[in-house]
Deep mutational scan, measured.
Amino acid sequence: MDVCVRLALWLLWGLLLHQGQSLSHSHSEKATGTSSGANSEESTAAEFCRIDKPLCHSEDEKLSFEAVRNIHKLMDDDANGDVDVEESDEFLREDLNYHDPTVKHSTFHGEDKLISVEDLWKAWKSSEVYNWTVDEVVQWLITYVELPQYEETFRKLQLSGHAMPRLAVTNTTMTGTVLKMTDRSHRQKLQLKALDTVLFGPPLLTRHNHLKDFMLVVSIVIGVGGCWFAYIQNRYSKEHMKKMMKDLEGLHRAEQSLHDLQERLHKAQEEHRTVEVEKVHLEKKLRDEINLAKQEAQRLKELREGTENERSRQKYAEEELEQVREALRKAEKELESHSSWYAPEALQKWLQLTHEVEVQYYNIKKQNAEKQLLVAKEGAEKIKKKRNTLFGTFHVAHSSSLDDVDHKILTAKQALSEVTAALRERLHRWQQIEILCGFQIVNNPGIHSLVAALNIDPSWMGSTRPNPAHFIMTDDVDDMDEEIVSPLSMQSPSLQSSVRQRLTEPQHGLGS
Rank of each mutant, 00 (worst) to 15 (best):
L63M: 12
L63A: 10
L63F: 05
L63K: 10
L63W: 14
L63H: 03
S64R: 08
S64A: 15
S64G: 06
F65Q: 13
F65D: 13
F65H: 11
F65M: 14
F65Y: 06
E66G: 04
A67D: 06
A67N: 10
A67R: 02
A67M: 12
V68F: 06
V68K: 12
V68I: 05
V68D: 01
V68H: 10
R69C: 00
R69E: 14
R69H: 03
R69A: 04
N70Y: 03
N70V: 14
N70S: 02
N70E: 10
N70W: 14
N70L: 14
N70I: 01
I71D: 12
I71N: 03
H72T: 10
H72R: 04
H72A: 10
K73V: 09
K73L: 04
K73R: 02
L74S: 12
L74M: 02
L74T: 10
M75V: 00
M75K: 00
M75R: 04
M75D: 07
M75C: 12
D76M: 15
D76P: 11
D76H: 03
D76R: 15
D76T: 15
D77M: 06
D78E: 08
A79F: 02
A79S: 00
A79G: 01
N80R: 07
G81D: 08
G81L: 11
G81N: 13
G81Q: 15
G81C: 05
D82N: 03
D82L: 14
D82W: 14
V83E: 04
V83M: 00
V83L: 02
V83Y: 11
V83C: 08
V83S: 07
V83W: 05
V83N: 09
V83D: 12
V83K: 12
D84H: 09
D84K: 11
V85E: 03
V85L: 01
V85N: 08
V85T: 10
E87G: 01
E87K: 01
S88E: 05
S88R: 01
S88N: 01
S88C: 02
S88H: 03
D89A: 01
D89P: 07
D89Y: 00
D89I: 00
D89N: 00
E90A: 02
E90C: 08
E90R: 01
E90S: 02
E90D: 00
E90M: 05
F91A: 15
F91E: 15
F91C: 12
F91T: 15
L92K: 15
L92T: 15
L92P: 05
L92I: 14
L92S: 15
R93M: 06
R93I: 13
R93C: 14
R93Q: 15
D95E: 03
D95M: 09
D95W: 10
D95C: 11
D95H: 04
L96A: 13
L96K: 13
N97H: 05
N97I: 00
N97S: 01
N97W: 00
N97G: 00
N97V: 04
N97Q: 01
N97D: 01
Y98W: 01
Y98S: 00
Y98Q: 07
